[in-house]
Amino acid sequence: MAAPTTTRISELLTRLTGDEKHAPSAYSTLDVLWVLYDRVLRTAPDRVDDPDRDRFLLSKGHGPAAYYAVLAAKGFIPEEWLDDLAGPDSRLGHHPDRLLVPGVEIGSGSLGHGLGLGVGTALGLRAQGLTDARVYVLTGDAELDEGANHEAIAYAGATGLASLTAIVIDNQSSTHGWPGGIARRFHGWTSSTVDGRDHDAIERGLRAHTGTAPHVVVAVVEKKG
């Protein structure tokens, strides 16, 4: 991350959490989120209702500080909203609510819902001829423990739902792990496994979809402490 951006995001995160000690690296999703919003997603604050926008679904809704910081940095939400996280009048909670936060595509928190919603969103866009719009769903390696994910992964792979990209933030937090690797769980998908802190590598992974199959990017970061 370029130095000015790092400083900016750090300021926003401090504003959110009141905690000056946390470096951006403490947030497992931060770099992927930044690359998505800075380089990849075809969306913007003035496009949140545009039917043809790309959709980003944060399935892993817990610990959304990095998400809120990026949304604020990109102008989706006022920075002032960061000052009262989860307060009684705050629109920002410990899990995001799509009806409260502009640009948030799904309310999430209970794990394992984003991929199913993402499959439906991709199907709905296709049925309406909105073929440029892509659907990105961010999950975690531990979130993949939830069986609902595997219904969506199997269906998307078997039917070649090519407009769907899953991003798995792999901080090795799944209790029993994924022997043999995460990408191989995505049968029928193309995959890229990248350094989840390397912005260029993340971008290359996100752009590596082929147009014929759904694509998964496994973004490996430091093991959760």
Partner: peptide, 21 residues
Amino acid sequence: NVGIREQLMLGVAGGLALTGL
């Protein structure tokens, strides 16, 4: 038809509805 996957069936319904269907 998502196959024998009822959680996905409802998730897909939610996604379709989010796109206006």
